[in-house]
Nucleic acid binder design. Structure first.
Lengths: 112, 112
DNA sequence: TTTTATGCATAATTTTCTTATGTATAAGGA
DNA sequence: TCCTTATACATAAGAAAATTATGCATAAAA
């Protein structure tokens, strides 16, 4: 992540969203996609990413499959059924969160 | 803050924004205003608020004046000159952050 | 051949909260 | 009158969630 890190607390919903949109991804791919989507604004650090993926797997939110790509390992993650449900909830929360931020930071243009 | 706390890392810019918009505020007032603006979505806890205000004061971002309101104390905070500069930067970061979140969570409608 | 990119992982530390607790005044309801 | 809620500050202990640093390994590029 970035040094100033407003992103603190948003990483989990971000990953869930990525998996929801792309179906099946491996960790490194997530970091690259986020970097691309946000035009370099957000860099997910590995120290944050991998422990979180492991936690989500433990919780049954995602499931993992290891594949070999040439000589290199890739660990693909995808949402479980419970994970999809959880993602819906997380997206609702994100929506409310972003709306609240708008209210505070952009009180004039924010539409409630 | 809320339990789910996506807000982690956003409290400081939120307070700066409040002070920028309202000029001079005391802590309790900030908690009430945020609650009102966000329709109850965001509740700033005192354990997060007061230590942060003290830190900002130490850093010369805000300055404090204690006043008595009847028999009750209020500690009013306002941005210093350095604080206003810092707030501008923080708002730029917030804008970029919120845009990035849009890109991720709402890729179709997000305008880049 | 050294750096950069790909790809995973974990440990130590720091940041930033939550939760709990404490003090004190004032207002409102039962 | 008494208890709860609201107002208003403060701090300490603990948890959560990052950062930073490190490690391993393969492959491509400079």
């Amino acid at each position: 992540m970035k040094k100033s890190s407003l992103y603190k607390g948003c990483l989990e919903p971000i990953l869930l969203r990525l998996l929801k949109d792309n179906g099946r991804m491996y960790g490194y791919q997530m970091t690259q996609m986020v970097k691309e989507i946000t035009k370099g604004e957000l860099s997910i650090t590995e120290g944050a990413l991998y422990p979180l993926l492991h936690k989500l797997e433990e919780q049954g939110i995602v499931e993992a499959e290891t594949e070999m790509n040439g000589n290199r390992m890739r660990k693909y993650y995808s949402l479980t059924k419970a994970g999809k449900k959880q993602t819906s909830l997380a997206m609702e929360e994100m929506k409310a969160f972003m709306q609240s931020l708008e209210f505070i930071v952009n009180p004039k243009t924010a539409i409630g």
